[in-house]
């Protein structure tokens, strides 16, 4: 019981530290891509900037639109932030460093992180703002369609490892990483694209589409409620990067260094790629996004699944 409590506190501390680091890092990456400096004033190269931002957001007035659906509007930020935190329960940081090694780990993570869409949809509906409503609708459509190729690409890994448990999947990669198989490479690509859509990041950030819907579902949120969405987004980013590390890049396996270091460096490298992509590409349109999911990604994922099955049975 005490161990559980300590693990919980450690995970929560890690989540907030990681989210803050990611916010700072994203700002730095974007700044350097755009030949700027980014935050430079608070602390060394602005490392304390997220803390300053958090203080600012805490002190801000919490504005509620007069016509908002009170309860839904109030609950939405929690739905956005709680599922990604819960997903940490099955993320393997090291050989025994996992909050709880569920035997259905990957299924659990997928199921939990799908709840996020409800938070976004609630925010869109509860704000009683037309832009937000459009954002919420887009988000629902997008996440539902991208979950299918995402799960199909995960199943290829599960078929290799013969288990749904995250630790077993990592152990199955003790000799060589999954990414080295050609069919796994394809699965990793499908997963990367689908996961980008899953966490609403550019080029698939249509729910918040800044230039069309102002800020989409979180237009009306201010102060700490907005910060909740922000933390939720970055925690989600960490989760999908951690999953891709576990599934395709050998998890915590690696020579010389301790497993945690390997796991975190791989994860943050994956995150860097997501950031790099975000600051490079234009946004896709909503119908193109759906067409891409159903006409390209899903068939590829199915074919890949069939090939994997055939390779395993051979």
């Amino acid at each position: 019981m005490l161990m559980m409590l300590i693990a919980g506190i450690a995970v929560l501390a890690f989540i907030s530290a990681s989210a803050m680091f990611l916010i700072w890092w994203e700002r730095k990456v974007s700044a350097h891509i755009q030949s700027r400096f980014g935050p430079m004033r608070v602390g060394w190269h602005g490392v304390l900037q997220p803390i300053a931002d958090a203080v600012k957001l805490l002190l801000k007035e919490d504005i509620r639109p007069a016509e908002a659906d009170k309860l839904v509007w109030w609950l939405a930020p929690f739905f956005a932030v709680v599922p990604p935190v819960m997903a940490f329960a099955a993320i393997p940081f090291g050989k025994s460093l996992i909050p709880k090694d569920l035997n259905v780990g990957i299924l659990y993570i997928m199921a939990i992180s799908s709840v996020c869409v409800i938070g976004i949809f609630m925010a869109g509906w509860g704000s009683n703002n037309k832009y937000s409503l459009l954002g919420g609708m887009r988000s629902a459509a997008q996440i539902v369609s991208y979950e299918i190729p995402m799960i199909l690409s995960m199943i290829t890994v599960v078929m290799h490892a013969n288990s749904l448990s995250m630790q077993k999947i990592v152990e199955a990669q003790s000799r060589h990483w999954n990414i080295l198989h050609p069919n796994m490479l394809l699965a990793a690509l499908v997963y990367t694209i689908a996961a980008t859509a899953e966490v609403n990041r550019a080029p698939f950030d249509i729910p918040e589409a800044e230039s069309e819907l102002v800020a989409g579902f979180h237009t009306e949120y201010s102060g700490m409620k907005f910060a909740m969405f922000f933390i939720g987004e970055y925690t989600n980013l960490f989760i999908i990067a951690a999953i891709s590390t576990t599934l395709f890049f050998g998890g915590w396996h690696g020579p010389f260094l301790p497993p945690v270091v390997w796991f975190l460096s791989k994860t943050y490298l994956c995150i860097f790629i997501w950031m790099w992509v975000r600051w490079t590409f234009p946004r896709a349109r909503v119908d193109q996004l759906m067409a891409f999911a159903w006409k390209v990604l899903t068939p590829i994922a199915f074919v890949n699944l069939a090939i994997t099955g055939w390779l395993l049975l051979k």
């Binding site: 974007s30 755009q34 030949s35 550019a202 800044e210 230039s211 069309e212 600051w279 490079t280 946004r283």
Partner: peptide
């Protein structure tokens, strides 16, 4: 134009540079 298409400020910054 690139910004309107959602290319998060990067082409805009290059153009302004």
């Amino acid at each position: 134009f690139a910004q309107d298409l959602g290319a998060f400020a990067t082409p805009l910054f290059y153009c302004f540079r």
